[in-house]
Nucleic acid binder design. Structure first.
Length: 582
RNA sequence: CGGGAUGUGGCUCAGUCUGGUAGAGCGCCGCGUUCGGGACGCGGAGACCGGAGGUUCAAAUCCUCUCAUCCCGACCA
């Protein structure tokens, strides 16, 4: 494509609204423009990249046996009432009424629609399994859209839904999608990790998030340095300690010590001149309306999701100051497990606390703590469980290797739904015995537009984007330095452009009447993985300059043997991205 | 929805505190000189200063309301 005839409004300066790097670069490189909060137009270059991502997703989904369909974006409210989500989904669901006062919403996801589709047609076990997917624009009325394509309200998503006759079949469908996702991200040329994620009330290890690794990512993931293990921070299991307390179980009787006005861990530690790992933090929660005390070591973070899962609870929220006073008899900051007042309060402790004694805990009275506390001796702990967040340096639950933290951007999610929707919507079939069974479902999402943003978050420098060849709008940027005054260069560049195009190479040909500096800047900004620069001097010497955008490495290709030298260079560039040669 | 900030040519901003009728750089148009890392000169077009109301002889500037956008928290592909 000739740049002179392509709508690519590049910007020298960063629009004030853009904060994160992918947003700034997408705007500057002329890929997208904002219409309104969280809603963007894709310009020619942006759309090409978006489509390339979608094409890779589509190919791998098809290869995995899924079938593409396209469902409506506008959905009737009635359908959502069937699963109860009309009430539960909240404000993210953009609702409206038509002229007949019927209720509708803009589809944020399509479990209801697809289940409705399948229940109407699939009657026999012979028709299963089935996996339907679509690549479509979704709308979620996010509380706070931000970061450009990273979290828009309108975004492009691939969503797939599998229907199986039983659990074993559903597990297989899940595995198929999991493998397809790995193939997709590999082909995209992105560094990623599938991570174990919290699967909420459904249980099991049946939820994985696919994270693109990037320092600017919003999520922290725990990654084993030695094996494949990677997990969400909320999910990562902390292995039980093995070291037993070495005081022989006798560290003296519990004693009250005054701690006037010291209610944070740091303040208490400083005041009593102790380390945070000898203190027990007591956090109070309102769990489905009943009080629960969660105990973790002073230097640890309590993981609410683990607490929720352990208790099989629906809702866990931190107690209000009023509740704390009512339950402990002391203001916030002095709660402790010993002598808790509230009736029926359950005490759940991290299992690490079972391996030591001599703790400092809140005394349940203002301005005082207890020291030399032995939880087993001085109070009744209802359960010891894995309750804290994993930290760097903890051991991998799989192999015992060291855990490190990485930042990531969630771009995909595979999830086993079970019977949640099929039951509510009566999606049933007859098995070989003529007996009615409920379909077992799975759902699998990929944020197509978010991948575009995350690819940039992962691959950029001060000059601009570094696109992986598989998703760059064009593989090659050809810069003609003719400047409108050097017909020989222009002619040679035209010829090269025609030749490459004929070979099937996608070329963005900068034939504009611009000075060389502008062309170099724009090429680096837009991020095509291969740059070919043809100038007067090179032409005289029979060479063209080639630059690998990723590494910045330059080489000279002989024009006389261009086809072969280009092919070889192209192979090198693709290999640098870890991509196969087409 | 809470907390913070900002709205001035296409973009980045100054001017607002201390009212006197709108500026710069970039970009754009024309001409000329230039042409390997965002050139230079000359000439030009382009703004009811987010909107509404108010105070005043006079409002971008002060007051009230409103809308939009961005950033920080709880949700999510």
């Amino acid at each position: 494509m000739r740049l002179s005839r392509t709508y690519v409004p590049t910007l020298k300066e960063v629009p004030a609204e853009a904060e994160v790097v992918s947003h700034r670069l997408l705007l500057r490189a002329g890929f997208i423009r904002k219409l309104t909060a969280g809603i963007y137009t894709y310009l020619p270059l942006g759309l090409r990249t978006l489509n390339k991502v979608a094409d890779i997703v589509r190919e791998e989904m098809n290869r995995a046996g899924a079938q593409e369909i396209l469902m409506p974006m506008v959905q009737p409210g009635d359908l959502w009432s069937e699963t109860g989500r009309w009430e539960f989904y909240g404000k993210e669901l953009l609702r409206f009424t038509d002229r007949h006062e019927r209720e509708y919403c803009l589809g944020p996801t399509h479990e209801e629609v697809v289940t409705d589709l399948v229940r109407g047609e699939v009657r026999s076990y012979r028709q299963l399994p089935i996996n339907l997917y679509q690549i479509q624009t979704k709308f979620r009325d996010e509380i706070r859209p931000r970061f450009g394509l990273m979290r828009g309200r309108e975004f492009v998503m691939k969503d797939a839904y599998s229907f199986d006759r039983d659990e074993a079949g559903a597990d297989l469908s899940y595995r198929l999608m999991y493998d397809a996702y790995k193939a997709i991200f590999r082909r995209l040329g992105l560094e990623f990790r599938p991570v174990e994620a919290d699967s909420g009330s459904i249980g099991g290890n049946f939820s994985h998030e696919f994270m693109v690794l990037a320092d600017t990512g919003e999520d922290t993931i725990a990654v084993c340095q030695a094996c494949e293990y990677a997990a969400n921070l909320e999910k990562a299991e902390v292995v039980a300690p093995v070291d037993k307390c070495n005081c022989g179980g006798d560290c003296g009787p519990a004693m009250e010590v005054p701690t006037p006005g010291k209610h944070t861990v740091e303040e208490v530690c400083e005041y009593l001149e102790i380390e945070a790992d000898t203190l027990v933090k007591t956090l109070l929660f309102d769990v489905d309306g009943t009080p629960v005390a969660g105990l973790v070591r002073g230097d640890r973070e309590l993981n609410e999701i683990k607490l929720k899962n352990h208790l099989g609870a629906q809702d866990v929220k931190l107690a209000t100051p009023e509740q704390v006073v009512a339950w402990t008899g002391a203001p916030v900051g002095f709660a402790g497990p010993v002598g808790l007042k509230a009736a029926g309060i359950r005490i759940i402790a991290d299992r690490e606390l079972d391996f030591d004694c001599g703790w400092v805990v809140g005394a349940n009275k203002a301005d005082a703590h207890l020291k030399s506390v032995d939880l087993r001796r001085d109070c009744k702990v209802d359960a010891y469980t894995d309750l804290r967040n994993i930290t760097e340096g903890d051991k991998c639950p799989r192999c015992g290797g060291a855990i490190g933290f990485r930042r990531g951007i969630e771009v995909g999610h595979v999830f086993k739904l079970g019977l949640k929707y099929s039951q509510a919507m009566n999606a049933v079939f007859l098995d070989e015995n003529g007996k009615e069974q409920i379909m077992v479902m799975g759902c699998y999402g990929i944020g197509v537009s978010r991948i575009v943003a995350s690819a940039i978050e992962q691959n950029h420098d001060a000059e601009g984007i570094k696109f992986p060849p598989s998703i760059a709008p064009f593989e090659v940027a050809l810069l003609s330095l003719a400047g409108g005054k050097d017909p020989e260069v222009a002619e040679a560049a035209d010829k090269l452009y025609a030749e490459l195009t004929k070979q099937g190479v996608e070329v963005l040909y900068d034939d504009r009447d611009e000075r060389p500096g502008s062309k170099f800047k724009d090429a680096d900004l837009m991020g095509m993985p291969m740059q070919l620069v043809l100038g007067g001097k090179g032409l005289k010497n029979g060479i063209i300059e080639a630059k690998d955008r990723r590494t910045g490495e330059k080489r000279e290709l002989k024009l006389a043997d261009f086809a072969a030298e280009f092919a070889s260079w192209r192979r090198t560039v693709r290999q640098g991205w870890g991509l196969d040669i087409d």
